[in-house]
Design a protein around this nucleic acid. Structure first.
Length: 838
DNA sequence: GCAAGGTC
């Protein structure tokens, strides 16, 4: 038997399909799909199935000096045990093996990892095939002529793993220990995340240091006959370049007065030009993220949608650096496929009218994967977001085979003769008109707005209708958005197509950035400052550049893995020599940065800082830095993670608080205002408590808590804890309509335009719980609405039901669901409930 | 519990 090993299941399936000419069948080993036909088996890994780490005796952060990690052994551990076991068992049955992982450096390393696992089981020949797109011709060609694994290239990847681990782990532990931040709030640094963070921090420094300057610009409405258009005043500055901004108010006023006094300007020059506007290059990951970003998708969301569309078979692999279509791609064929599509047919037909279909190409041609393009398989059921992204990729493909657009540019300069205090004044207008729509007809994502300027001749007089003087200020540089950051990371050579968006997410998760565009926290500023002083390399893009050079040397046989990693160890040891002396200082610096993110303002009782703190039970509250001398506290809502905003309450001089809770993020505002408002609010009684009303006489009332939450609760609280949640916002109206089942008034919430008929609070809460429960079930992998409904019909309506159910019994009752699937969902439900309990 | 890189 011949064993074929690919990097992912998707590739295994498609390669099996090509090589078997559709005759492969699938079986499972340890739950891992294995494709079989004739004397061949094909298994897909899941990227790296082994990872590097330190031996277990280094696991405890307190027991090990961070610097000890520098010389610690680095061992490989199996991270995907079921896949490794499946691979081992196949290897024992195989007579030969072929590594068919991705055609890039990391693919070579993943291939070598598979090679070693196979070698441990069987002494069989192992070859390597390389292809850059999974097409009939490339795959059959590659398998007809197998090559050898490139161990030097794989070693280059291993060197990266070791260097990243020892620098990242040792410095992360050092910073965390120095600031006494252990547990989930550790302080991380790394070769990729830290230069990315510095990029964000540096921009913030520029913004903070920015000193705005006043300047003035002048505009005039000119007209030819009845056609008016806007022109802008300009002049030649000292360097002889064209400038529009005037930095002296007196000069601006003088020009303004002069232009207002003039009734006409004479056309001095007219320049006409035709410009071609070339269609864009094919999508690589970065450019795709950018385009999806302009449709409003975050980088994470864009990648997640593209991955789903890829897995479903509608798009090619979304992680690619390539911007050149492979020779194998027949663009005409693909267009013809789309010609029958109800939505894209017309555009595809129009493109097919071209005699030669010559796709555009970008600067980067790589062997990893083709640029992202539609496969020609038409999707049927997509969500709105998925459809929007799918259409973007289809249209991008269309654009790359479409004609250029052409624009007519018209530049008119008109002059007003000078006066006593003012020199000759010039006004310019730049018109543009789309002559030929070209690719814009099929790719409507770029602006094609025109600017109308009438045809005029030199010497013609134009009336000056209105003159405007705009006082402006120079603006600080703008924060980079996520897609701009990813583009910058790419140009710095930091991270990879598959990791850059994840690195940004990591910065959010670590409390280093907030908001979108990402803005650094004080902690982030502190970490970058500390690193710049004591471990400059870890925040510099140069570390990656050097590592790339070293990896190239290893790949080319000019250096060895040991030489590169040993040199890196020496450098890191020198960094630690400096760090050890400054340990206290670094820790103090980080701790004050951490505190700065949590300060709200002065305590009304003791004048110390009020801080966001966390109780022993994990809930957040506002406490005084003077504790235990001052015990002043204010509550915070119990949902979400608090974020302290810059906005400050005028009454209490406290910064506002925002509660981050994913889609349910909301602004809490000033915690003292909230608490005072609750103290002043009267409870409104609406009925009898269903729990203790009969026996104890408890009543239900609408209450506002000092944390800002509202609820319907028993007046006998805390003796009776019966309560129902109410929305945080809006005025609650108690109507005269009563619920027959519960004898409570129906409630209406007024918030914004549409009143929300909440109804009886008990019924409302029951419905809300039911929806939550249904959602929790649907959130498990691979359960859609329909399956959830089928499960509900079988009596499974909550995660609790699912966990306590007998898998085989349920499988017998619910059509199309295996007991194995149910056991998988039970494991997930366990994990989810565990996570939400934390 | 640390990194970055694969993949889901």
């Amino acid at each position: 038997m011949e064993l074929i090993i690919t990097e992912k299941d998707n590739a295994a399936r498609r390669i099996a399909d090509i090589l078997s000419e559709g005759g492969a069948s699938v079986e499972r080993r340890n739950g891992v799909p294995v494709y079989r036909w004739g004397g061949r088996r094909c298994i897909g890994l899941s990227g790296h199935v082994v990872g590097v780490d330190f031996p277990p005796e280094y696991a405890d952060w307190r027991d090990v000096q961070p610097v000890e990690l520098v010389d610690a052994e680095v061992v490989k551990t199996e991270t995907q045990e079921n896949i490794v076991a499946a691979l081992r068992s196949l290897a024992r049955e195989a007579d030969s093996a072929i590594v068919a992982t991705d055609y890039d450096r990391e693919g070579e390393l993943i291939g070598k990892e598979a090679y070693e696992l196979v070698r441990e089981e069987a002494d069989i020949p192992i070859e390597r095939v390389r292809f850059s797109s999974i097409t009939d011709r490339e795959v059959t060609g590659a398998f007809a002529d197998p090559e050898e694994l490139d161990f030097d290239l794989a070693a280059a990847g291993e060197a990266r793993q070791i260097v990243d681990l020892m620098w990242g782990a040792a410095l992360t532990r050092f910073l965390s220990l120095s600031a006494k931040q252990l547990g989930e709030d550790f302080i991380s640094v790394g070769r990729v995340q830290s230069p990315t963070l510095k990029l964000i921090v540096d921009r913030e420094r520029e913004i903070e240091a920015f000193d705005p300057e006043d300047y003035w610009e002048l505009f005039a409405d000119l007209s030819k006959d009845e056609e008016a258009f806007e022109a802008q005043y300009f002049f030649e500055d000292e360097d002889g370049t064209e400038a529009e901004r005037l930095w002296e108010e007196a000069t601006a006023d003088a020009v303004y007065d002069h232009l207002r006094g003039a009734s006409a300007a004479t056309v001095e020059s007219v320049r006409r030009r035709t410009r071609t506007d070339d269609p864009p290059a094919p999508f690589n990951t970065t450019q795709y993220i950018r385009a999806a970003g302009s449709l409003g998708y975050s980088a994470q969301r864009a990648m997640s949608i593209a991955e789903d569309l890829y897995t479903a078979g509608y798009l090619t692999y979304p992680r690619t650096d390539n911007t050149v279509y492979p020779e194998d791609l027949d663009e005409r064929d693909l267009l013809e496929t789309f010609a029958t599509h109800p939505r894209f047919g017309e555009d595809a037909e129009s493109l097919l009218e071209r005699e030669d279909i010559e796709p555009t190409s970008g600067d980067k041609e790589t062997t990893d994967h083709p640029p992202i393009h539609p496969t020609g398989e038409f999707p049927t059921e997509l969500s709105d977001d998925e459809w929007e992204v799918y259409e973007l990729v289809v249209r991008r493909f269309f654009a790359t085979v479409a004609d250029p657009a052409t624009w007519a540019h018209l530049r008119v300069v008109a002059a007003v003769p000078g006066g006593e205090t003012v020199e000759d004044c010039r006004l310019k207008a730049n018109g543009k008109r789309l002559l030929e729509e070209g690719y814009h007809a099929v790719y409507p994502y770029y602006s094609t707005s025109e600017n109308y300027v009438p045809e005029v001749e030199e010497g013609e007089e134009l009336a000056i209708r209105e003159v405007r003087l705009d006082a402006k200020q120079t603006q600080p540089p703008r924060r980079r958005g996520q897609s701009r950051l990813i583009e910058t990371m790419e140009s710095m050579g930091v991270g990879t197509k598959a990791t850059r968006h994840g690195t940004l997410q990591k910065l959010y998760d670590r409390g280093y950035v907030e908001n979108d565009p990402p803005r650094p926290t004080k902690l982030a500023m502190g970490v970058v400052e500390a690193a710049e002083r004591f471990a400059d390399l870890i925040v510099s893009e140069e570390m990656t550049a050097q590592l790339e050079r070293d990896m190239t040397a290893i790949a080319e046989g000019e250096a060895t893995l040991d030489e590169v990693t040993d040199e890196s160890r020496d450098i890191l040891k020198r960094v630690f020599a400096d760090l050890h002396e400054s340990r206290e200082e670094v820790g103090e610096h980080l701790r004050s940065a951490l505190k700065a993110d949590k300060i709200l303002g002065p305590c009304p009782e003791s004048g110390h800082d009020l801080l966001v703190r966390r109780s022993r039970w994990g809930s957040y509250f506002v406490g005084c830095d003077g504790y235990p001398d001052c015990e002043y506290t204010l509550p915070l809502p119990n949902r979400g993670e608090p974020l302290v905003l810059d906005e400050t309450c005028e009454d209490h001089d406290l910064r506002h608080v925002k509660m981050l809770a994913g889609r349910n993020t909301y602004t809490h505002g000033c915690p003292q205002c909230q608490a005072e408002a609750a103290d002043e609010a009267d409870d409104e009684i609406i009925g009898t408590c269903p729990e203790c009303g009969e026996e104890e006489g408890g009543e239900l009332a609408i209450k506002t808590l000092r944390s800002g939450s509202r609820l319907v609760g028993c007046t006998r609280y805390p003796d009776c804890e019966y309560s129902l949640p109410l929305p945080r916002r809006g005025d609650i109206e108690v109507t005269d309509e009563f619920c027959e089942d519960h004898d409570l008034p129906e409630l209406v919430v007024h918030n914004g335009d549409e009143p929300w008929e909440l109804g009886c609070p008990i019924c409302n809460y029951a419905e809300y719980r039911a929806r939550q429960v249904a959602q929790a079930i649907e959130d498990l992998d691979g359960i859609g609405k329909k399956t959830a409904e089928k499960l509900a019909a079988a009596g499974i309506e909550s995660l609790e039901d699912l966990q306590s159910a007998e898998a085989d019994t349920v499988a017998a009752e619910v059509q199309g669901v295996s007991a194995d699937r149910i056991r998988e969902w039970q494991a997930q439900a366990q994990a989810q409930r565990g996570a939400s309990a934390d």
